[in-house]
Amino acid sequence: MLELPLVKGDPFHHVMEAILDLSDVAHVVCTTRGLNLLAVDTKHLAIVSLLFPAEDFKGYTCDEYISIGIPIRDLVNAIRCGDDKDTITLKVGEENFGTITLSFVSPEKNTVDYEFRLVDAKLERFRLPDRHFLRSKYQGSVKMPSVEFRRICKCLSNFGDEYGVISVTDEDLTYFAKGTDGDVYVEYKQQEEDTTIFKIDVREPVRLAFNPKYLNTFAKVFTLSGQVKLFLSKTHPLMVECKIGQKGRIRCFVAPKVEP
């Protein structure tokens, strides 16, 4: 049995809204320890994962391992229909396993229940990297304010939606996007005196090409946290991470474009 309390605008809802146009299904695994959401875009160019430990989720109840595929559009449409003051609970019961119920209760105790079929997520073939993998395969990381990151992603995506580049050295971080009528180039210098807001940590310079559209889609999710951390690799997808609550986190991976 699973009971997942939701609030309009919380991280779970935020992630669902962000990936609405990229993916049809969110693969959600729940255990007594918490929730893990995974969604891949339909072209398999990007993946987003949300980890939410039970202690960060007030009212979270799960007494067994549950792996379900949630139809994103149905869920988002239902949440949009609800009132901001409603208490929302996503339920998967033993007697109706194959469907999920989204229950809305108003402050006056009026209720609206949505019931929809679960779908096959088909994500069993994906294995996301752990911390050890990140340390060994990623040559550089950059911590920066999430609002700033979103601004850059929006700028890159508006300018050129097909080809962008992130480069990092121990002195600076640069973003580049190629548009049809020109290019945009953004540079951040590492400041010696203050590394709490912006910090570069690289073993060797990294340059990574990608599609800015995907990063822009995820960037708005990262504003749930004050800071984002970018992990760059010469051989693996770009990863962006932010912390949510005490121990929760959101990660997204964007597959690179490589020279033939």
Binding site: K43, H44, I47, R125, P256, K257, V258
Partner: peptide
């Protein structure tokens, strides 16, 4: 002239 890689190229279970 770049090749767009896919996530499955990197994170598939063996």
């Amino acid at each position: 002239p770049c090749i767009q890689k896919r996530i499955i190229d990197y994170f598939s279970k063996k």
